[in-house]
Write a protein that binds this DNA or RNA. Structure first.
Lengths: 336, 336
DNA sequence: CCGGTCTACTAAACCGGTCTAGTTCGGCTA
DNA sequence: TAGCCGAACTAGACCGGTTTAGTAGACCGG
């Protein structure tokens, strides 16, 4: 830096100003400095800059990258951060490298704000972090503290699916739930409320598969086959739906002719040509945008009140839903 | 740091030594310092340390995290890096955030070594980078330069599949290739060589689907159905295989009864309950281990010669391969 | 022509560590 | 007992920026 300054005949401070695009430098000087830096192949040393500077313009992101939904959000976060002049430091949460560890590392890098994607930390830990630096939790509810939250309204997402099915004429709809977790609960309640709103009972309309996996879905489908089939099955996520689809199709059930099936997440799974599942998008791009907005408004515009943004998910209609086959009561006499 | 030093009655330098776990500090002093630091809630400032220290013990990793194979390797890299005392800075390559950009950022973070997962950069750029700092390319061949490379031998992987099929008794095997890229080419050649080794001709045994997608696989399957079906289909990757499976099953072809189908990558796709594909694992864990070994041996043990490690992939036998149905020539008179 | 204000620029302190070149001191050898 | 050595520890320079407090000169109204 001193070399660059000497070459142009100015001080280190001026060079610093130029590189930070700060005001107070004449046009000519600015150009000269940039040219000299280029000639000398000079690049700023971020570590040194980080040391004294008030701002680092760094955002920490913690994610389970093996989860494709997380990965998708991360991609969008990187893009959005670019636009508002922040750099992203990504911390990978793995079975051997827990969230606390990742977050500590990110803090050590002098990140100014933190974005946690689907954190599994207790609410109090998240709240503590939020007190240290601006933090946004993505995709999960947080009860305690004043941490910002951006997520998608699971209840309304499922409700949208139910509306879609009812509109097609379905009356006999079953929900394949995924156990007792927060997310599974939200979706189940969403289903029940939507059904009641349309004047249908929910007695016996929920089948708990217990988990978010394909296997659980297959099991659920087998149990559905034991009695008369509903005309539509609303699954708590795409993986369950894929399991249900597999078993039903193997039994020769026409999808969507006899039974409509829906998923949730709009994962790659759902988009695959041979699945082509009607599902619900959690809008990762939009969640990323909102999260960046939240953290930047705290950082750059001094916002202090809590933001809790709940997006309305969008139904994505593909090829596993259709009007129920008129007058046909399915479920019997099917080949095995 | 000065506060901690004062509290114990030693100098800053000693505190620094303690925190770097450097030798030359008495046991009692060490304990005192750690206790004092704990009391005062002191943590080392990495930015400051980075500035002067010769070593940063930071490794840069560039990956396309939306690719689940990349993500899997990253996870393993993080784990391995932990073991050898390095920290990983992960840079996400996205459509809007190219590899050059990511690499520059990683360099700015003062990474000592660089791991590039499936880079799409020209060989010369990679070679240049390799001259600046220890670099390992994972999963791809690099012609020029002396950069270390860790990858999986695609030719042998496919050969393993062919061996498996021949062992089961297959003689009429077709390869669904994926166009003209480096990887597709390696796999195609691997297939042809293996077939010849077993004394089979390769005339007409390769069907180029042109791409690595499900759609291309479906197209290839349709074209296979136009004439007599082979008893086994070796696909260039899992996605192609999934497409092939889908079309054949819809036509009522029994898999693996009439036709065996194989993939490549052992992706989640292949592991899914309703696919359960015989495929080839590229051993992401092992590739990660070797890559870390390579970079660490350069960094810590001063290795300078080029390392090019080619792993032998492992076949994963699942439920889409079986012995051909004796005496039956399939492919005719099937409903549709 | 004078004080006041702005803009462009600078010298030097400073950030929080690490590194170099010592100093001290107990123990061992000759 | 002198001489030497290694281990434990330290003062102060140093890393490469940023920031503070301030200077020089242009412009401006009165």
């Amino acid at each position: 830096m001193q070399d660059v300054a000497d070459r142009v005949g100015v001080s280190k401070a001026t060079v610093s100003l130029v590189f930070r695009k700060a005001p107070g430098v004449g046009d000519k000087t600015r150009e000269d400095v940039l040219r000299a830096a280029d000639d000398l192949g000079y690049r700023m040393n971020r570590a040194a800059a980080l040391m004294t500077a008030r701002r680092s313009h760094l955002l920490g992101v913690s994610a389970q990258i093996s989860n494709s939904f997380h990965a998708e959000i991360v991609e969008n976060i990187v893009t959005e951060a670019d636009l508002v002049g922040y750099e992203v430091v990504l911390g990978a949460v793995t079975p051997t490298h827990g969230e606390e560890r990742v977050i500590e590392t990110l803090i050590d890098f002098r990140c100014e704000g933190m974005l946690l994607i689907g954190p599994e930390l207790p609410g109090t830990s998240i709240s503590n972090l939020g007190n240290r630096l601006p933090t946004v939790v993505i995709g999960r509810r947080v009860g305690v503290g004043s941490t910002d939250v951006v997520r998608s309204n699971d209840g309304r997402g499922i409700a949208g699916v139910v509306d879609h099915l009812v509109e097609l004429g379905h009356e006999n709809v079953v929900h394949v739930a995924a156990g007792r977790g927060v997310i599974a609960g939200d979706r189940r309640r969403g289903f029940e409320q939507a059904m009641r709103r349309h004047g249908f009972g929910t007695e016996g309309a929920v089948l708990d598969a217990g988990d978010f996996t394909e296997e659980a879905g297959m099991e659920a489908a087998r149990s559905l086959l034991e009695s008369e089939l509903p005309t539509a099955v609303v699954c708590a996520n795409d993986r369950l739906a894929v399991g249900v689809l597999e078993v039903l199709r193997r039994k020769g059930v026409d999808i969507p002719g006899e039974v409509s099936v829906t998923g949730y997440d709009d994962s790659i799974l759902a988009r695959m040509g041979n699945v082509d599942l009607t599902t619900v998008s959690q809008q990762p791009a939009e969640q990323a945008r909102q999260a960046i907005q939240a953290v930047v408004s705290r950082l750059d515009r001094g916002r202090t009140d809590r933001v809790s943004k709940t997006l309305t998910p969008e139904i994505v209609v593909r090829k596993t839903t259709a009007a129920p086959r008129a007058g046909r009561h399915s479920g019997q006499a099917r080949g095995g």
